[in-house]
Design a protein around this nucleic acid. Structure first.
Lengths: 226, 226
DNA sequence: CGGCATCCGGGAAGATACTG
DNA sequence: CAGTATCTTCCCGGATGCCG
């Protein structure tokens, strides 16, 4: 076994008192913020994280989890028997990183290089709902919708101009939408024509169609100065 | 010479439609967001950037500037003769990255590992004012203050519960504060005792002392779950 | 001096294989 | 399934040098 450095954080520091710099030391390493994103809606297991982040290899995930745990962003917990599996979950402070993810997502959605056709994780889609929801368009409407993506399911509620999304089994919802996250994103954010392409909607399909009108992607930015 | 990939962005992509992932590809590389931060309050020259980000080497800065320019975050402009120097400035879209910097700063300020005694850049300090200003504490108070750090000077105005900070020569201000950014930060964010330590205030010193009461650092987060 | 290319050492990221 | 071990590749950081 070789001697390890005792630096609580990794070696390369910015040496800058600005909080932004410290935030970058904690969340700025590759994949770190995406790991946090995947945990934003509840605990996950090692394998769940790997599955939702294709391209992230096991050893790097191990390093990120260690670093984020050391920084106090997440913790590991063992579920009670008979499950007895280990899950990773955000600390309360880690949960508060959501505004960072939202600001980043809202800003980058305006990039000329943004490609909405790439794969999308279920949690990423749910967080995008929180980010892109437009209370002005929803008005006083209310609804509760279920979303199913393989083993993961979510309930999204809209009421009083507020949208909430949480991992939960769909009960007492107006409709349950099943399909890939990409197909749901296309229905919500795409132009109207291809709506409901590749999706199955159980229950009040009209409720989901109404729902798709309550979101708006921000306009693309120009590459040059105004 | 070896064949270069033509990927407009650097090689390692996340392949994820979520805006957060694209934002990380653009701003997630080392130093990138800090370069943007330094340009947030106006254009800077190559050397100015190096001076405000000690530890960032010239070749890496060149790479970051190239990458950020390719992404449409900043542009380079040559000032009119006789100055004839090249400066880097954010595009309108690049300017909109400030919420990311603010969210990151506000969040990381709660880290148990945050060390406020490290060096601080003038622009970092000004942005922290924007982030940490508490309208409730300022109430209906108004003021205009000048800050001088070597060659860089700024004017901060508070009125109607809003704080603005911009690079400008101090004219028509109540007081002009001169010193290091660290000393100003200690006066504004530190406990009351060491106020005005190492600072010189020209004009209405009382106006600056009042000003220091309008900010509050958020409480430290616990490292463990609640 | 400002901007950028080049070379080099160390270390992080990525892919694969392996173990309990 | 949850990681660890190993190897390769590439990025980061520092130094040097060229050119306007």
């Amino acid at each position: 076994m070789k001697l390890e450095k005792i630096t609580s954080l990794h070696g390369r520091r910015y040496e800058d008192a600005c909080g932004t710099a410290l935030g970058l030391e904690i969340l700025g390493e590759r994949w770190a913020l995406l790991v946090v994103r995947e945990l934003m809606l509840g605990p996950k297991r090692f394998g769940d994280l790997r599955a939702s982040l294709p391209g992230l290899s096991a050893n790097v995930l191990t390093q990120r989890l260690e670093g984020l745990e050391a920084a106090g962003v997440l913790g590991r917990r063992r579920l009670a028997p008979p499950a007895s599996v280990q899950v990773y979950e955000l600390t309360p402070w880690g949960l508060e990183a959501e505004p960072i993810i939202q600001a980043m997502g809202r800003w980058a959605a305006r990039s000329p290089d943004h490609d909405a056709t790439l794969p999308l994780s279920p949690v990423g889609l749910m967080l995008s709902f929180r980010t892109m929801f437009d209370p002005g368009k929803a008005g006083a409407a209310r609804t509760a919708l279920g979303f199913g993506f393989g083993a993961e399911s979510f309930v999204v509620r809209v009421a009083d101009g507020l949208l909430t999304a949480a991992r939960a089994e769909p009960e007492g919802v107006e409709a349950v939408v099943t399909g890939t996250p990409e197909a749901v994103a296309a229905a919500v954010y795409g132009p109207a024509p291809e709506r409901l392409e590749g999706l199955t909607v159980a229950g009040e399909a009209a409720a989901f169609v109404r729902f798709t009108g309550w979101f708006e992607l921000p306009p693309k930015a120009e590459r040059r100065a105004a």
